[in-house]
Amino acid sequence: MKSPSTGEDPARERAVLERLIGRVDGFILTSSRLSNAEVTALSDRAGIVMLNRHVEGISCSLVDQDQGSRHIITHLAALGHTRVAYASGPSSSWVRHQRWNALSGYAQASGLAIHQLGPFRPSLEDGPAAAEEVLRTDATAVVAHNDLLAIGIIQHVQGNGLAVPADLSVVGYDDMFVSRFCTPSLTTLGGQYEAAAHHGVEMLVEGRRNQVVVLPSSLAIRESTGPAPGDRHCTAPHRRS
């Protein structure tokens, strides 16, 4: 039985799980918004495997965020960027904090200034709000929580008379299918997500407990990143009112 999406809402997620307990043998939770304590308590009542999140004592299958985030910082630094913004995802997102910790740590080690903005929903609809916050900073590059948010940022920036990447470089996470076909195509961190899901199913079916599988990520460099402008606030065209 396939569980419906709970739309980033922990209350809906909790309700769906309660309704299904006893009707299924176990659950694979993808980017769950439940607290660690709730997940642990749930594991006493049903088999649980986590995807895209780690909870102590619960089997999980993850795509690397640490080294992948290092590749993002290295890429931006090589392009001359010294001021970066991170448009973060929901505050309840485990991976949001993993990405920020990695980005900020590697930025500091590389001599880059980085600021966390948000939180934002990981959606096109929150792109304009995220873009406006970025444009109020002196950042020449922004790393978005996921590809949809990144594309929403690009659309809003371009709609206000600025160019990507000439005025602002944009990076996403997840390498969704659409990231190849937006304009400009999106530089984004992808990884072996299908393999992670396969491992998750195996762990649940075989009843493995407290096993952690971490799969590699890879940075797809496309058209949305380029050399840092000298001073975006001085050289960029006037934004549309």
Rank of each mutant, 00 (worst) to 15 (best):
Y106Q: 14
S43L: 08
R208F: 12
D138C: 04
T183A: 03
H233M: 13
S35D: 11
E223F: 07
E206M: 11
S92K: 15
A139N: 01
L117N: 02
A87T: 04
P216V: 05
V49L: 03
V170K: 02
R180K: 05
V143I: 09
L219W: 10
I73V: 15
G161P: 00
V49W: 08
L42C: 00
A131P: 05
E18P: 06
D167N: 08
S217R: 01
V49E: 02
L29C: 03
R208K: 13
N36I: 10
A196H: 04
P10N: 02
V178T: 13
A102G: 06
S104F: 15
S91C: 14
L17E: 00
D231P: 02
V170Y: 01
V164M: 02
A109R: 15
H81A: 05
L189T: 02
G207P: 11
T82A: 10
H198L: 15
G230I: 15
S169R: 02
I58C: 00
S185F: 14
K2L: 14
G57A: 06
L189W: 03
R23V: 07
T137W: 09
E202L: 13
S241Y: 12
L29G: 00
L162A: 06
L103A: 05
A107P: 07
S61W: 03
T187S: 11
L103K: 05
V39T: 01
R208V: 09
G57I: 14
V84L: 14
I73P: 03
R209I: 07
W100S: 01
N160L: 09
V201C: 14
C60N: 01
S88D: 13
T6E: 09
V95F: 11
L17T: 00
A46G: 05
V170L: 04
S92R: 14
Y193H: 14
A87E: 13
H81S: 13
E133T: 09
I114G: 00
G118A: 12
G7F: 11
S179Y: 03
L20T: 04
R209K: 12
I154R: 13
T82K: 07
I72H: 01
S104E: 15
V201R: 06
H199D: 09
L149D: 03
L162F: 02
Q108V: 15
R83S: 04
P128A: 11
C182K: 01
V142T: 08
V170T: 04
S110M: 13
T40Y: 15
E125W: 13
S169A: 10
G127V: 02
A228E: 09
S110A: 15
Q116L: 15
D138P: 03
G105H: 10
G26M: 09
V142Q: 08
R19S: 10
L34N: 00
M176R: 03
